[in-house]
Design a protein around this nucleic acid. Structure first.
Ligand SMILES: [Mg+2]
Ligand SMILES: [Mg+2]
Length: 391
DNA sequence: TCTGGGGTCCTTCCGCGA
DNA sequence: TCTGTCGCGGAAGGACCC
């Protein structure tokens, strides 16, 4: 029995929202990201901008040179989230077997619904019409027997595309290696060194050989991908979770007071998100990027869970002291937490928990949050002072 | 060209205890 | 008791994706 998976992917999402919210931008090269002259890269751009050679991930400074008449807009994440939520609700209405995988993408499992809904392509057209009518946005849909192929299929005719894979091998052989989800620049280079330059060629290698060349997980992945079998690109239950926040300075910094201030702000953001999300974390991570772009992280696992932003801040400071010589200019600072655990979820060996207990925990978290917000100003000042002393 | 911010997963190394 | 090895958790780095 063969499944029918839809992958739905909005086209140039952020840029399209900007055009929709301001129709005078339609038909024009819209580039979403920092203003030119600032550090950073393009988050998204309209197809008109792509004709100038612009793509997401490109430094805005370069984008501005390629397209001086481009319209540069800041990232309005709140707005995109709002639209995304509404669209995802629409999609989830179609089938309960629905999995959102990013702000603008989702899988729908419509296996065995042909008698109810009609042929898959027709359902695809219906979805596209619906979203176009209600939101004025175009999207691309890929339909295939598994998530892996469906994802590739939605790319195939982008933008405003609709494609169903009926012959997986034929379909794959029309693509290039780089099109495969999970094969990036480095893997492409390594494969090229082994004289593997196409998906057909990749398919001719045994699983064992691929594993010996690319690692156990990598080899397995490539072996399955080349055959159109889902290597597991989006698991239903991710095994790791982390929360982090980082900032690239407008200009590299070596001033201790400014650096400490950033560290404190980042720590507060993280702790806020931990509390709101109901997470417990026992590992703190500090990330430092220097002027030459070398990046290091240093982490520490505690014997208890982090309980306050002050505590996280103190750990971050301690880690920075270990890493930083105090004079090399810093380009980016980041603070994060890993090993996240939601109290009361299966890990602790409880199959279920009564609702009152959950409710109490939420309440407790909110109270703690309020406490923290109250004491914020005072804490901030005091902590910054102690810090300056050792700088 | 001069390189964001938010993530997940994998590999390798190391020390520890069985 | 010595030695090899195995599994594990922690740490650091890296590839990749949106
Ligand atoms: Mg996408
Ligand atoms: Mg998209």
């Amino acid at each position: 029995m063969t499944g029918t998976i839809f992958h739905v992917d909005l086209d140039a999402f952020y840029a399209s929202v900007e055009q929709q919210d301001n129709p005078s931008l339609k038909g024009k090269p819209v580039i979403v990201g920092p203003q030119p002259g600032n550090r950073g890269v393009v988050s998204a751009c309209s197809y008109e901008a792509r004709r100038f050679g612009i793509h997401s991930g490109m430094p805005v400074s370069r984008a501005a040179r390629l397209c001086p008449q481009g319209i540069f807009r800041p990232v309005r994440m709140k707005r995109y989230l709002e639209i995304s939520e509404e669209i995802m609700k629409e999609l989830a209405d179609i089938t309960p077997v629905f999995q959102q995988i990013s702000i603008d993408e989702a899988f729908l499992d419509l296996s065995g619904t042909e008698r109810l809904f009609g042929p898959a392509l027709q359902v695809g057209r219906m979805i596209k019409e619906r979203i176009a009518d209600r939101f004025g946005l175009t999207l691309s849909i890929g339909i295939a027997a598994n998530k892996f192929l469906a994802k590739l299929a939605s790319e195939y005719e982008k933008p405003d595309g609709l494609f169903q894979v009926t012959e997986p091998i034929e379909f794959l052989d029309r693509l290039s290696l780089k099109d495969i989800w999970g094969i990036g620049e480095k893997t492409l280079d390594r494969l090229a060194e082994l004289n593997i330059t196409s998906i057909q060629k990749l398919r001719s290698f045994s699983r064992d050989i691929l594993c010996s060349m690319m690692g156990v997980a990598g080899g397995r992945y490539l072996y399955l991908a080349a055959r159109g079998m889902d290597p597991g690109i989006y698991s239903d239950h991710p095994r790791s979770h982390s929360i982090s926040s980082e900032r690239t300075f407008a200009r590299d910094k070596k001033d201790r007071t400014a650096i400490n201030k950033t560290l404190l702000e980042l720590s507060q953001q993280i702790m806020h998100r931990l509390i709101v999300g109901g997470w417990q974390a026992n590992t703190a991570v500090l990330k430092v990027r220097y002027e030459d772009f070398t990046t290091t992280t240093i982490q520490k696992t505690l014997k208890h869970y982090l309980t306050s932003s002050d505590e996280l801040y103190r750990v971050a400071l301690e880690l920075l002291r270990k890493k930083w010589n105090g004079s090399t200019p810093i380009r980016l600072l980041g603070v994060g937490t890993t090993q996240l655990l939601r109290p009361g979820s299966l890990e602790q060996g409880e199959l279920f928990e009564d609702r009152d207990l959950k409710r109490r925990k939420v309440e407790q978290a909110v109270t703690e949050l309020k406490e923290k917000m109250k004491g914020l100003k005072l804490t901030k000042a005091s902590l910054l002072e102690t810090k300056d002393r050792c700088g």
